[in-house]
Amino acid sequence: MPVRDVGARTESPLTSRGQERRDELVRFATAKFAQQGYHPTSVAELVDGIGVGKGVFYWYFASKEDLLREILNDALLDVRRHQQAAIRSESNPIRRIELGVRASLEWLQQHAEVMRLVDFAWTEDTFAADLRKGRAISIEDTARHLREAMDMGMIEPADPVTLAIAVRGITEEVARVNADAANPTVPVEDVVRMVISGITGKTAIDRERDPVR
């Protein structure tokens, strides 16, 4: 069960109603921050928007800064859950990367407002440190699959961290471009094919002859 951190108070589990109210605040704040910006949005606007008092806000979050940090953390955990669900039963490391990239792009396509908040957060020292930690975890996840693929002789030996950074860079930039468009302009499957071709050195014709899956 989720636990709230209320500063000096003893931590206690949220009730189901409490969790619903917290999630409502998170959803509304995510949309509001993405629409009009983090700094211009006040706590008063947030609580007025869902019809509660400031006391309710501060029951769940120590500050507006704490709220945005929670939004970013929740998003990181959710996208990782989607990735893990996509690759859980797959034994082929290249196929896991393919499934993971697809899951990431699909999640980000459905949560474009989060990508806008991430871009803002990188400009603020307050949040950038947390983002760097999340980036390091993501890169190491991908590098682990790449090391396994190299050990199995599926791809040429190389620095797995460098390759993982490239995979993340492509995925993140495509998500950013799609988030800025009224409708996604870069097809997910095109990106997945490009990433896998870059890792394996195989064209579409090569993959038909010698598939990685």
Rank of each mutant, 00 (worst) to 15 (best):
R9K: 07
G153A: 07
K64R: 09
A179L: 05
I87F: 06
I170Y: 03
E65Q: 12
P40R: 04
D141A: 01
L117W: 02
E189G: 08
S89L: 12
T15H: 10
A181V: 11
A31V: 10
R80E: 07
V186Y: 09
V195C: 04
R81D: 07
L76E: 14
G100S: 00
V52C: 13
A204E: 06
R69T: 07
R207I: 08
D159T: 11
F120R: 03
A129Q: 04
V52K: 04
L146V: 13
R81V: 08
R21P: 01
G49F: 06
Y60C: 01
H111Q: 10
E98F: 01
R96K: 12
L108V: 09
D125A: 14
L72I: 05
P184S: 10
Y38R: 01
T203Y: 02
R27C: 13
E65R: 14
R4T: 13
T123W: 06
I199A: 03
V56G: 07
I137A: 13
Q110W: 02
Q84F: 02
Q36L: 03
G7N: 03
V192T: 07
L72T: 02
E113C: 11
S63T: 15
E208T: 12
F33D: 00
E124V: 12
N73T: 10
D190R: 14
E140V: 07
S42P: 13
A164Q: 01
E173R: 15
A29Q: 00
R132H: 15
T30D: 04
K54N: 06
A166E: 06
I71A: 02
I137P: 01
M154V: 06
Y38H: 04
P211Q: 15
P211E: 12
T203M: 12
A8F: 02
W107Q: 03
I87P: 00
I155T: 06
V161A: 12
R116T: 08
I205W: 08
A112S: 12
A158R: 13
H39R: 15
V52W: 11
L76H: 11
N73C: 08
T200V: 10
I170C: 02
G201I: 05
P2N: 07
Y60P: 01
I199K: 00
E140I: 02
R213A: 12
D125Y: 10
P184I: 05
D206E: 14
D66P: 09
L108D: 03
E24R: 14
V3Y: 14
S197H: 03
A103D: 03
L76S: 09
Y58K: 02
I50Q: 04
Q83K: 07
T171K: 04
E98Q: 09
S91F: 07
